[in-house]
Design a binder for these strands. Structure first.
Lengths: 223, 223
DNA sequence: CGTGATCTTGAGGGAATTCAATGTCGGTGG
DNA sequence: CCACCGACATTGAATTCCCTCAAGATCACG
């Protein structure tokens, strides 16, 4: 199947890139169809039936929610190996969009649920995915009570860990995306990146490329 | 963690849990021991083995996490019918404390997981509990990006919904607890309650008792 | 009644936002 | 090729909102 053409990232073992989800690869990867989304395309909308879940093969996606007055919160960013869109309810509580051109494996939820009813291991995996997501969102809450400086530092460390390319990180998302993820304004994110740059903690060769020069300084801000 | 002696085994027939979790009542209620915790007692600590999960019979509990510099985040409040402490990992990521004197049903996780391996319905329920918690935490994130006024208003509506006693709410938690839940200071919470009172949106017969006078005003702030 | 814990209120300061202007980059067409 | 354009990002100035610090007020309880 097409799934095998998934891009390989820098993991030496040649296994799935994201830690903790390796065991989910096999069964799930074999059940879905591979689809592509262009940059900025909507993958699903808030309130739509949650009939499918998605596993990122390449590219980056985000989930988001827009409040009545236009404020937007980004629930999370999803890179190769990540799963999103899994709900127990009937509807998606967030919408999802492609940040960069994306290849995704799409799996029908009902198929997984039916399989889980017979296969205990699959049931355990569905639970594990939800549970991991829960832990991620709990971490996100801790982020939102920190100062702007700390949020930005934590964000950089998180991204560096999830897109492991040494000390240089190629951010797939805009400043506005980062701001809406961190609960800040674009300007505040930008200012704090500049401050970190002036402190020689990071380098900004271009706006989307960030080099972590002093990780311990970032970790100190990670509180 | 304090080891409590079980007050009673099993559970009386016909207990009626709280809305939305009714279906979880039967199987789970029958599997655990009933224990009591006094006000302010720790139920479990962050990083401790997540060997048990808890269902509130009476009273209120909270989960919380303290950052290195002393800032505290409250993950959630749990009232009669709510389940907390369920993790897929080996350790609790938050600690849990009794806010008021509490009776809890304690269930061994390994027993549930073992049962889930044979009983698909139990597996589905474990997933449902985690999934509900995920949705709750996602809502919490939306709270944390709002203004102080909005957070307080949303909190009041949430509590009024979860402790359904008409328009009067008897809050089991302190202002500091509310503040740490909302990502604000105690003073800011207090000030905004006063403002809402002066606007005739709520009444404060005592600091812990709040009467919602104008729900639509609160809903308007709910954004 | 005191005493401590909890809550409210006030004044001042600071961090993040808002509004506005300038700067940078990648693409497109002259 | 480079000039221009739009999208995105940075920087500046003023303001707003929340926090900090401090002083009272209220409540529960011995």
């Amino acid at each position: 199947m097409l799934i095998q053409t998934a891009v390989r990232r820098g993991s030496p073992q040649g296994r799935l890139p994201i830690e903790g989800q390796d065991d989910l690869g096999g069964p799930i990867d074999c059940m879905g169809a591979l689809i592509s989304h262009r940059r900025k395309e909507e993958i699903y909308g808030e309130g739509e039936p949650a009939d499918y879940l998605y596993k990122v093969v390449s590219g980056t996606a985000r989930t988001s929610k827009v409040l009545a007055d236009g404020r937007r919160q980004i629930g999370g960013f999803y890179v190769a190996g990540d799963v999103f869109g899994l709900e127990t309810g009937e509807e998606h509580s967030f919408s999802a969009e492609a940040i960069s051109d994306c290849k995704l494996i799409v799996i029908k939820r009902s198929a997984l649920v039916a399989l889980a009813a017979r296969n205990h291991d699959m049931a355990r995996q569905l639970w594990a995915i939800t549970s991991m997501e829960l832990r991620r969102v709990e971490e996100h809450i801790l982020l939102l009570i920190k100062s702007a400086r700390e949020r930005v530092a934590t964000f950089l460390l998180e991204m560096a860990e999830r897109i492991p390319t040494g000390n240089a990180v190629e951010l797939p998302m805009s400043r506005q995306d980062i701001a809406d993820y961190l609960g800040l304004t674009m300007e505040t994110v930008s200012r704090n990146l500049t401050i970190l740059e002036n402190a020689a903690t990071i380098e900004l060769p271009s706006s989307r490329r960030i080099v972590l020069r002093n990780r311990s300084a970032l970790n100190r801000l990670n509180a």
